[in-house]
Simulated assay, not measured.
Amino acid sequence: MSQAAPQGHGHEQDHAVRVQRVVTSGTFSLDGETFDVDNNVWLVGDDEEVLIVDAAHDAPTIHKAVAGRRVTAIVCTHAHDDHIDAAAELSVLTGAPVLLHPDDNELWSFTHPGRKPDGELRDGRILTVAGIELQVIHSPGHTWGSCSLYAPFLDTVFTGDTLFHGGPGATGRSYSDRPTIEASLRNRLLTLPGNTVVRTGHGEDTTIAAERPHVPTV
């Protein structure tokens, strides 16, 4: 299933950059348990090139949504298997590098033991696509290597499973920590402009302002 999301707003510049959501279905497995999940896959770009956020479950469906555009990167917000299980196949289909924060390399190896990511996400790194910039924000807690991507031009942040409609992502499993995710949200994400649209790894969009009351101050 594919659904076009709103373009950036509030900018005088006329730009064809847009955000597209593709919802894929599969499973999430960790700590000996498996759950059925639906994931948001995000495509950011224009008619010529696109960046993919989280290659979940179904590489052919994601590739179809690319629709022949050049893929600049496949960005993994974190390395839980439901966010990366299609990454290797999608990289072959598109020729694009897979990027992951190195603190999640161990988690990655559980799903792709024979293949390493092609490049590293680092806090402050700037990725470009279709003439706009996306800033990598290391926001650990859901996993140690969890990252968000902030696109000021689009008034949008892609948060993976770090921030949802209703508050912080889960921290009840291995490689996670509740105080750490709350600190990441307070210090890194909730300081973004309140009108910033939060595009999450699962479920519906929200805004930074709407989520501030859901995170403890200290």
Results as ranks from 00 to 15, higher is better:
residue 1 M to G: 11
residue 41 V to K: 04
residue 83 H to G: 06
residue 73 A to I: 01
residue 158 F to M: 11
residue 82 D to H: 14
residue 140 P to I: 02
residue 192 L to V: 13
residue 137 I to D: 03
residue 85 D to F: 00
residue 149 L to N: 00
residue 45 G to F: 10
residue 145 G to D: 07
residue 22 V to I: 13
residue 199 R to V: 14
residue 132 I to Q: 09
residue 20 Q to R: 11
residue 77 T to D: 00
residue 59 A to L: 07
residue 161 D to S: 10
residue 149 L to W: 06
residue 58 D to Y: 02
residue 157 V to I: 15
residue 95 G to L: 05
residue 16 A to V: 00
residue 54 D to Q: 14
residue 152 P to Q: 08
residue 107 L to G: 14
residue 93 L to W: 02
residue 218 V to F: 09
residue 210 A to D: 15
residue 72 T to Y: 01
residue 109 S to K: 13
residue 44 V to G: 04
residue 162 T to D: 00
residue 183 A to T: 13
residue 2 S to A: 09
residue 119 G to H: 04
residue 122 R to I: 02
residue 180 T to I: 14
residue 72 T to W: 00
residue 1 M to H: 12
residue 8 G to S: 11
residue 3 Q to W: 04
residue 134 L to A: 15
residue 4 A to H: 11
residue 154 L to K: 02
residue 145 G to A: 06
residue 41 V to D: 00
residue 39 N to M: 11
residue 133 E to H: 13
residue 54 D to G: 04
residue 7 Q to M: 09
residue 116 K to Q: 14
residue 188 R to D: 13
residue 33 E to W: 01
residue 59 A to K: 06
residue 173 R to P: 00
residue 71 V to M: 06
residue 93 L to V: 01
residue 189 L to N: 07
residue 88 A to S: 09
residue 57 H to G: 03
residue 118 D to G: 12
residue 45 G to Y: 08
residue 92 V to T: 11
residue 3 Q to R: 14
residue 71 V to W: 02
residue 205 D to L: 12
residue 134 L to S: 12
residue 3 Q to S: 11
residue 6 P to Q: 06
residue 104 D to C: 07
residue 55 A to G: 10
residue 42 W to T: 14
residue 131 G to Q: 07
residue 17 V to Q: 03
residue 6 P to L: 08
residue 139 S to K: 00
residue 40 N to A: 02
residue 53 V to Q: 13
residue 77 T to M: 11
residue 36 D to L: 11
residue 90 L to N: 03
residue 124 G to H: 10
residue 112 H to E: 05
residue 91 S to V: 03
residue 213 P to I: 11
residue 65 A to W: 04
residue 4 A to Q: 14
residue 56 A to N: 12
residue 201 G to I: 07
residue 151 A to W: 02
residue 62 I to F: 03
residue 179 P to M: 08
residue 192 L to N: 13
residue 119 G to I: 00
residue 205 D to Y: 08
residue 154 L to S: 07
residue 133 E to D: 15
residue 38 D to H: 09
residue 215 V to H: 03
residue 5 A to R: 10
residue 184 S to Q: 04
residue 35 F to S: 05
residue 215 V to Y: 06
residue 168 P to Y: 10
residue 20 Q to P: 00
residue 40 N to E: 05
residue 84 I to A: 03
residue 31 D to K: 02
residue 108 W to K: 05
residue 47 D to N: 13
residue 82 D to N: 15
residue 171 T to I: 03
residue 13 Q to I: 09
residue 158 F to V: 11
residue 172 G to R: 12
residue 16 A to S: 12
